[in-house]
């Protein structure tokens, strides 16, 4: 039996609700995007229902402490198709066992969630580290990013607390939405990049006149801090995988 859902979080939680209502035995959860009908297997399309989802979430909150609710949410943000099924099975497992079952690292779903959460948290941390703002002429600090997972919801508070006295925008170019901090709150925005604006590197005209100065100083600093006698390219690339170089001012030529 396959359950199909719309890959939203409420949809996933609704699926759990439906399972407990029907008790259909072994079920695999798949999102509509990857579902392909199979000849000898039945399927059931879950109709996302916020009331049912809320009840399941409330139930989870009773069963799990904060750290595990976060692991659950992070695993969801990974957007990995198999992660959805693990989340589904994990939730059923948690409801069917007494409190504390989430520490059973011998269980395949528990360990899977721990791993997804670890990857997502690592990506979140990398964004906190590797994002480089550019000061635009209209006074906003802008950056466009392309994270492996949907981590913007996780980094919002970090940047809000840290850069409380400057307006900033972090734009997810892959998922086509961004965060804008307006000195009071962080709001979700979408930008239309059609009129020839390079989303990753706004042209110099759009930037503050001092931007060039500080990016050059930073590149200089990066070079000066290196000890040539200790060169270790393998370690360097291990810490800063090449796919992140596009964000880093210090790794750009010129």
């Amino acid at each position: 039996m396959t359950y199909i859902f719309d890959s939203s979080l409420p949809g996933l939680l609704t699926a759990v609700f439906e399972w407990f209502e029907r008790k259909p035995g072994k079920v695999v959860l798949k999102s509509t995007e990857i579902f392909q009908p199979e000849a000898f297997s039945e399927s059931f399309t879950v109709a996302t229902n916020s009331e049912k989802a809320d009840r399941v979430w409330a139930g989870l909150q009773k069963k799990l402490k904060k750290d595990w609710l976060r692991k659950f949410y992070c695993s969801y943000l990974s957007e990995i198709p198999e992660a959805y099924n693990h989340l589904f099975q994990f939730t059923i497992y948690i409801f069917q066992n007494s409190t504390g079952a989430e520490t059973n690292y011998g269980n395949e779903h528990v360990i899977a969630l721990a791993k997804y959460a670890k990857s997502v948290e690592r990506e979140k941390h990398r964004m906190e580290a590797f994002i480089r703002f550019q000061h635009t002429a209209d006074g906003i600090f802008y950056t466009g990013v392309n994270p492996d997972f949907n981590v913007l919801p996780l980094i919002s508070n970090h940047f809000k607390n840290r850069y409380a006295d400057q307006q900033w925008i972090i734009y997810d170019l892959k998922r086509k939405y961004g965060l804008h901090y307006n000195l009071n709150t962080v709001e979700e925005i979408t930008i239309d990049f059609t009129n020839g604006v390079n989303s990753k590197n706004p042209s110099a005209i759009l930037l503050d006149e001092k931007e060039e100065l500080y990016s050059v100083l930073w590149k200089d600093y990066f070079k000066s801090a290196n000890i040539v006698a200790r060169k270790n390219t393998k370690l360097h690339v291990q810490h800063v995988p090449k796919r992140y170089w596009k964000y880093l001012t210090e790794k750009q030529l010129s």
Partner: peptide, 12 residues
């Protein structure tokens, strides 16, 4: 937070 790493692999 380590914001970057120099080519000798040390964090900055």
């Amino acid at each position: 937070i380590c914001h970057t790493y120099t080519e000798d692999g040390r964090c900055v």
